[in-house]
Design a protein around this nucleic acid. Structure first.
Length: 578
RNA sequence: GCCUACGUAGCUCAGUGGAUAGAGCAUCCCCCUCCUAAGGGGAGGGUCGCAGGUUCGAUUCCUGCCGUGGGCGCCA
């Protein structure tokens, strides 16, 4: 693309030249903004006001001088000095018209930027414990992470999407135990099911599957299971841990089968769920592999050698307070078992060893206290903690009948992502999730989402796409011919408005990538769809005048391209018909 | 208590160191002889939580206060 064909770049260069002439001793950054008010022109420059103080001159006077020094341009219709010293630029339609052709030529590469320069970055997201179906809270992390990764890829980064599988911890043991206890019930061995074990129906399903596959092979007498188990009333968690230990003891090597079965079932379920939600990962990284490969020992050795570990009360501690954390953290408990944090240290060091120059973790907001210690560990290992960036996603709170709905996984009374998708559809769910800034709480009113799904803003955008597809269908010509259209015929105010909106797309992509804000894309698409609908009502596309018809069809074909690119980033489909 | 985020229209939320702060929903009015009315146009609706500070200029940046959510484990 010819850089001169972009009005903003051209103006930027012009003002830079004017600045050098008027105030060469003040090399300010030239900023061009789009005024909110159409009456303030296409672009506004505040250079004069910034220069007023250092030059000790009246800002309007400086603006006068800048304008005098501004190189002439065939695209500039007029300029004015307004308000305290703004320079407003009004462009001729010709400045925008050529864009439609360029977009159609560029196709899906329009709006892509070189911001990322092929930098290898990793986005890790969802990473939910595979202990049950994904719920609506995970759904937000999934939608946000996937859209963020897409935006970054579109902005020129080499993005790797990863899911960290917590397959090593106590939660997995609790799931394995829960499954086994349900299985025992199936075998007519009744052990009271602990209230703090996993209650969900999917646990029954897994138990039934194991029974169907292996009969009573994994059954043990209930009396044996309950032997010397402390009462749940005295210490519920201790009761659970004792049962887990007993399961391991009675089952021996078979415990690994139950554990593995439950893990694979839940992981597979989550994978299918996410795939249907158009969320894909390049890799699934196992926490257990860190234990088995010795990477945790290696990582801790690295910290030990640098003098950041110490022993106390039988446990091994990381001196994270030396790196700004509020207290030191245990990495190996007095029972010799590594903490989740120890695995996470090894995991993050491993990420960088795999060659990512930057790593983005998408975490739930409840993990914010965790940032300091992970970054601390990176510093302690001699790495730049700034290479890890954490995007915190606030919780999505469900409302049902105006009441907050509980989302406890163990109690099994949450709404699953799958339920939500079935109720409001993948498109609406993906779109709704990213319609909020990630650090903003999301109130997801289920009744509203269900009852008003046809008023959903996502349909407004999809409808714009379908309308264009319908017109191009009715026309039935060859789209490549539109590249020859005379764009000089695009003069209607609505046409110019749409062209200006299309010109914003690359800037939106850059901002969204830089600020980790895919919601900017969603809002942009709403604006773009509004401009298209406005034009649709104002102008007939399939007119008698062939030159005008071709020009207008070119414009809407370009619009369709940008709608597609944007929707694709958000994981929302672009239907031809509605 | 400490940490962290948020507080903008009746509701849900965008946005910005600049000129008259926006959208959707809700309310009221209008527009299909025409490529999809899942559309368009118009009206009403605001002390941008409060108080200071920095600035030519603050809703935006800083500090304090008030309110709300989340986090402060040898859980993951």
């Amino acid at each position: 693309m010819n850089p001169n064909s972009d009005p903003k770049s051209l103006l930027h260069a012009s003002f830079h030249a004017a600045l050098q002439q008027v105030a060469p001793e003040h090399p300010l950054q030239v900023e061009l903004e789009r005024p909110r008010q159409a009456s303030h022109g296409d672009y506004a420059c505040n250079l004069a006001m910034q220069l007023a103080k250092p030059l000790k001159r009246n800002p309007r006077e400086v603006a006068q001088a800048l304008l005098a020094a501004l190189p002439a341009s065939e695209w500039v219709d007029k300029t004015e000095i307004a308000g305290p010293g703004f320079i407003n630029i009004f462009l001729k339609p010709a400045a925008w018209q050529g864009l439609a052709t360029r977009i159609l030529q560029a196709g899906q590469t329009y709006g892509r930027s070189t911001l990322g320069q092929g930098e290898k970055i990793q986005v890790e997201f969802v990473s939910a414990n595979p202990t049950g179906p994904l719920h609506v809270g995970h759904g937000r992390g999934a939608a946000f992470g996937a859209s963020l990764a897409n935006v970054l890829a579109f902005a020129g980064y080499d993005v790797h999407r990863e899911y960290y599988v917590n397959d090593a911890g106590r939660q997995m043991d609790i799931l394995a135990l829960s499954t086994w206890l349900r299985y025992l019930e199936r075998c007519d061995e009744f052990v009271p099911f602990p209230a703090n074990a996993y209650q969900g129906g999917y646990v029954h399903t897994m138990a039934d599957s194991i029974f169907a596959l292996h009969g009573k092979r994994y059954a043990r007498p209930a009396a044996d299971v309950l032997q010397r188990i402390p009462a749940a009333e005295d210490d519920a968690e201790g009761h659970l841990d004792a049962l887990i230990a007993k399961a391991k003891q009675l089952l021996g090597a078979d415990y690994g089968y139950i554990h593995g079965f439950a893990l694979e079932e839940q992981l597979g379920d989550g994978r299918n769920d996410l795939t249907e939600f158009r969320v894909r990962f390049d890799s699934w990284f196992s926490e257990r592999s860190l234990h088995e490969s010795g990477l945790i020992d290696k990582a801790l050795d690295r910290l030990r050698q640098r003098g950041h570990l110490y022993e106390q009360d039988g446990a091994l501690w990381f001196r994270s307070t030396a790196f700004g954390d509020e207290k030191d953290r245990v990495v190996r408990r007095d029972n010799g078992i590594y903490t989740y944090f120890a695995a996470d240290i090894a995991y993050h060091l491993n990420k960088f060893e795999r060659g990512f120059s930057r790593v983005i973790d998408v975490w739930g907001a409840d993990h914010h206290g965790y940032i300091a210690r992970v970054k601390g560990a990176l510093s302690a290992a001699g790495m730049d903690p700034e290479r890890l960036q954490v995007a915190l996603v606030q919780f999505a709170v469900l409302y049902r009948n105006g009441q907050k709905a509980s989302m406890s996984t163990r109690a099994g009374e949450y709404v699953t992502l799958r339920d939500l998708r079935a109720e409001v559809g993948n498109d609406a769910a993906r779109f709704f999730y990213v319609l909020r800034k990630s650090d903003q709480h999301l109130d997801f009113d289920l009744d509203l989402a269900k009852s008003q799904s046809s008023d959903n803003p996502v349909y407004y955008i999809q409808y714009a796409h379908a309308r264009i597809a319908s017109v191009l269908n009715a026309w039935g010509g060859i789209e490549a011919d539109l590249l020859d259209a005379d764009t000089g015929r695009l003069e209607h105010p609505q046409e110019i408005a749409l062209l200006r909106r299309l010109a914003e797309f690359p800037e939106i992509i850059t901002s969204a990538a830089r600020e980790f804000s895919p919601h900017l894309v969603a809002y942009y698409l709403k604006d773009l769809a509004a401009d298209l609908h406005g034009l649709y009502v104002a102008c007939q596309f399939l007119v008698q005048d062939e030159a005008l018809r071709q020009a207008r069809l070119l414009l809407i074909a370009a619009t369709r391209q940008v709608l597609r690119s944007g929707l694709d980033i958000l994981g929302v489909s672009a239907p031809e018909k509605m």
